[in-house]
Amino acid sequence: VKKLINAPQDAVDEALRGALLAHEDLIAALPDSPRAIRALDGPRPGKVGLVIGGGAGHEPGFWGYVGRGLADAAAVGNLFASPPPGPILAATQAVQGGAGVLYIYGNFSGDVMNFDMAAEIANAEGIPVRSVVTTDDIASSPIESRAARRGVAGNVFIFKIAGAAADRMMPLEACEAVVRRANARTYTMGLALEPGSLLETRRPSFDLGPHDMELGVGVHGEPGVVRQKLASADESADLLLDRILTEMAPQEGDRVAVLVNSLGSTPAMELYIILRRVRQRLKARGIIVHKSLVGPYYTSLDMAGVSLSLLHLDAELATLLDAPCRSAALTLP
C-alpha cells in the first residue's frame, strides 16, 4: 500500500507538526511536552479543565477536538499507543483552573493505565481529577460486560457534551455525571472493507479477501468481531443500525444524533449513501434526528470502512450538543 510519508518512525511527529501549523490559530503544543496539545482559547479560572487523548493514527483525533467549547488539551501517544503519564500530567497542570480536571479517553488497557498513573500524580499534587472511560463500541463486548467495551468514534459526541458542560462552568462532579450519561447513551459499531496498512511495512494489518468485510472493527486496524460477505451500502447500514437500535431501544419521538464516520480512506460519497439509509430507517421508526455528522471524524489510519454512532439524546444532552464550539475538526456557530 502506497503512502505519502517520509521515514515511518517520523510520521506521527511530522503529522502532529503539520496539524499544529495548520491550526496555529487554535492549538499549540506545551513548550516542554510536545505531545501535549492545548487550546489557545483557555483555560479559564473556575472552569473544569478537560483533557482527552489516546494514540496517534486517529487524526483529526485528538487535537481536532481541542478548542473553545471542547477539550482544553489532548495528550497524543505513538501510533495506536496510549500516551505515557508525562504529557497527560503536563496537560493537566496546564489547563487546570482551580475547579479540577476531567479525563475522557477510550477504554483500552494502555490508556486506562497511563491516564490512571497521571491522575494519581495530579491528585497527589492537589489537582482533583475525575476520569470517564468511554465504552461506546457495542460490538466489542456483550451488553452484560458493557464496561469492557472499547471507546471509539462515539467519543466525538462525548467530547462535545463534556466541552459544553465545562464551558457552562458546571462543577467537576456535574461534568463527570453528564459525561457518564452521554457515554452510557452513545452506541457505535463499525465495519471495514479493507484493513489499514502499517507505516513500517506498508502492508495490510490483517488479510481480508476480495469478497469479505469485517464487522465490529475498532479504530486501531484490528480485525473485527466477525467476517462476512461484502454487502451493499444499505445492507451494511442496516447491519450496524439494527444492532444499535436493539440496544438503544428508543421510543417513537425520541431524539438522536448520528455520526457516519470514515475509518480513513472511505470517501464522502459512500458515507453519505450510508447516512441516507440510516436517516430513512430512523424516520420510519419515528425517531427524530437532531444532528448528523458525516466525515472522517475519528479514523484508523487508512482503513477502508465506516462506523455508525448514535447518541440517544435527552433534553440536557441536546442542549449541550448544540452549544457553540470551535476546533480544527468541529465548529458549530
Binding site: 494514540g55 501517544g77 496510549s82 505515557p84 508525562g86 488497557s109 494502555g110 497511563n114
Partner: peptide
C-alpha cells in the same frame, strides 16, 4: 521505557 512508549507495554 514508560516515557518512550506509553501504550499497555509502557506501564507494565
Amino acid at each position: 521505557f514508560l516515557n518512550a512508549v506509553g501504550a499497555t507495554t509502557g506501564p507494565l
